[in-house]
Amino acid sequence: MAVSPPVCDFGAPWHDFTLPGTDGRRHSLSDVKGRRATLVMFICNHCPYVRSIIDRIVRDTRQMQAAGIGVVAISANDVADYPQDGPEQMKAEADRHGFSFPYLYDETQAVARAYGAECTPDFFGYNADGRLQYRGRFDASARMAGPTDTRRELLEAMLQIAETGKGPEIQTPSMGCSIKWKAA
C-alpha cells in the first residue's frame, strides 16, 4: 500500500544523529551537512518506488553535491521482517549503484521517528541554517520510473534552497512504501 507523507513543515529543525554507514564508519549530521543545504533521505533496498528511481537519485545527488549540498541516505526498516534491507545488503546496494553519499542504518528507528519519516523514499531538504524547506517527491515517478524527461522536482528544489535558503512554496508529497516499523 502506498503511503504519502504530510506536506512540508517549513522551518522545522533538522535532528542530529550518529549512525553506522555501509563504509564501516559512523556518520553524524555534522559530518554530512552541506555548506549551502542538506538533503536527508529515507530509502531502502527492496521498495519498488525507490528501485524505480535509484539511478536518478544517484545522478541528481552528484549534481547537488557539486553545488555544495550535503546528502545522506538512511534506511530504518525492520530487518527482522525485511532482511533484504539489512546492513550487508545496504552495502551491496551502495556499491552496485556507486553511491556518492553515506548510506546509514537506523537500527533503533529513533532517527526516522525524530524526522517523522513515513515512507521510502521520503525526502527532507534543509537550508544552511538547518530549517526544513522541502518535503516533496523526487519527481513524478511512482512504482515505475517516469519518462526520462520528467521534471526533476527534488533537484530543482534543493538547488533553489542552496541559492536562496527557501524551498518552493508548492510541493507534491512523495509516495512510497511505508517504513517497516518494529513491533512495539
Rank of each mutant, 00 (worst) to 15 (best):
Ala37Pro: 12
Ile54His: 10
Val72Asp: 00
Asp129Val: 02
Tyr126Asp: 07
Glu156His: 05
Ser75Gln: 10
Phe124Asp: 01
Gln160Asp: 09
Thr61Leu: 08
Ala128Arg: 15
Phe123Leu: 15
Ala73Glu: 00
Ala162Asn: 05
Gly116Gln: 09
Arg26Trp: 02
Asn127Lys: 03
Ile161Asp: 00
Gln63Met: 12
Lys166Ala: 15
Arg152Val: 11
Trp14Pro: 00
Lys180Arg: 09
Arg62Gln: 12
Arg113Pro: 01
Ala112Asp: 06
Leu159Asp: 00
Val50Cys: 06
His97Phe: 06
Arg96Tyr: 03
Lys180Cys: 07
Ala66Met: 08
Tyr115Lys: 01
Cys119His: 03
Val79Ser: 05
Cys8Ala: 14
Leu159Cys: 11
Asp78His: 04
Ile43Cys: 11
Asn45Trp: 04
Ala145Thr: 03
Leu154Pro: 09
Phe123Gln: 09
Cys119Trp: 00
Thr148Glu: 13
Ser4Ala: 14
Thr148Asn: 10
Cys44His: 06
Gly11Tyr: 14
Asp106Gly: 06
Ala112Val: 06
Gly125Gln: 04
Asn127Glu: 06
Arg36Cys: 10
Lys33Asp: 00
Cys8Glu: 02
Val7Glu: 06
Asp81His: 12
Leu154Ile: 07
Leu104Tyr: 02
Asp149Asn: 11
Ala2Val: 14
Arg62Asn: 07
Pro168Thr: 11
Thr22Cys: 08
Met41Gly: 11
Arg135Cys: 06
Ala142Tyr: 08
Gly86Asp: 15
Ala12His: 02
Gly116Asp: 14
Phe99Gln: 03
Pro147Asp: 13
Thr148Met: 09
Ile43Gly: 07
Gly70Leu: 01
Pro87Met: 15
Val58Ser: 04
Met90Arg: 10
Ala37Val: 12
Glu153Asp: 15
Ala110Lys: 12
Val79Pro: 01
Arg59Cys: 04
Asp149Arg: 05
Tyr105Arg: 15
Arg152Thr: 09
Leu19Arg: 05
Phe123Thr: 10
Arg137Tyr: 06
Phe138Gly: 08
Ile57Val: 15
Ser141Pro: 01
Ser30His: 13
